[in-house]
Design a protein around this nucleic acid. Structure first.
Lengths: 181, 181
DNA sequence: CGAGTAAGTTAGTGGCCAATCACTACCTAA
DNA sequence: TTAGGTAGTGATTGGCCACTAACTTACTCG
């Protein structure tokens, strides 16, 4: 397998592992095992652990952005909102790790920023803004609508992370039930 | 100093340290240093590291809940919403670590749940519901309003964690600027 | 064939970290 | 004065982990 193909599979494995354990709670050993490769080889493919996390988080953002883009294609206003909401619901059901990875990304950026690492957060803020802009475009550039849409999305992320089951009353304030697995 | 008083100061130190490094990225050594006590002594005051994290997260939830309770006292509907929003803004400005600790709590619960630890999440979900109910009561038991209020709160948490500065355009969709430090 | 290159491994190192154990210092009450 | 309880420390340990260095295998091309 070529190095590029390997890197790709490392990123996919990293999303799964990091989404569970977070940056510090995930060993490079665990990622390597999932890929089916020796642990030192990861350091040939990437400069270090943080670089692997960065790529995994970036990929995750891009996947969500792409889901929004496709769902809202050719739609506008309320139709686009509904389509994107449904698409996000489906994404969570299929790949809950992408939701959890987002949460891990948020705290990892905060930690990097606190540690004086500027680049790391900068790269991920750019990815996040990509997602924001796709949503905003679908909303006809209405920033209030966009903000509200993303706000509900973030609450969903938190409730899922916290393990509130679909029949719990915290979900009562949503139009539709949303829950992974 | 009595053991109870020490425990109290450990919890306060733990909130600061855990909010920065998360569960796995924070050493008990760091907490002990901040308290001004030897590291092994922490294990006399608490059964283990997780217990310290649990108490820190619990305390954090209770603080936020208390802020909402006090801010909404005697108010209802839109007035209560505004009062609680302002109070949260002030809390973030004064103690940003309480916001970050919430984020750390979310991913820690997800990790514990994935590891089969049921109790940990259960305890923190109870604290979260306490906060939910206080907000809900202030909203006159309107769950849609409550959900929306909390959704905006969660988006604020995420944007602050991600390090978006107050003048960044992502904040344009909010009534007022909200930013720590 | 032989040389180069790309994919991959085994072995090892230095550092950190949660938790334990055995000990000391001080206070109080009989 | 001593016995017991409470607050606290120093030393240690066993395990994990990111990362490095050196070696191997296999394919390709002149």
């Amino acid at each position: 397998m070529s190095a590029d193909e390997r890197r790709e599979s490392v990123i996919r494995a990293a999303v799964i592992e990091f989404s569970r354990g977070g940056y510090n709670g995930t060993s490079t050993e665990a990622i390597a095992k999932r890929v089916g490769v020796s642990q030192p080889y990861l350091f040939r493919l990437f400069p270090g652990k943080q670089a692997i996390f960065l790529e995994a988080a970036r990929r995750c953002c891009q996947d969500v952005t792409e889901v929004f883009r496709r769902a809202s294609e050719g739609l506008q206003g309320e139709e686009a909102t509904k389509a994107m909401g449904d698409a996000y619901q489906a994404l969570i059901a299929d790949d809950p790790e992408k939701l959890l990875m987002q949460m891990q990304m948020y705290v990892a950026v905060a930690a990097a920023e606190a540690a004086g690492d500027r680049e790391f957060g900068e790269a991920l803020r750019a990815e996040w803004m990509e997602m924001y802009d796709v949503a905003n475009l679908a909303m006809g550039a209405d920033v209030d609508e966009t903000t509200q849409f993303l706000a509900y999305g973030m609450l969903i992320n938190v409730l899922v992370s916290m393990g509130f089951k679909p029949d719990h009353r915290v979900w009562a304030g949503f139009y539709e039930e949303v829950q992974p697995k």
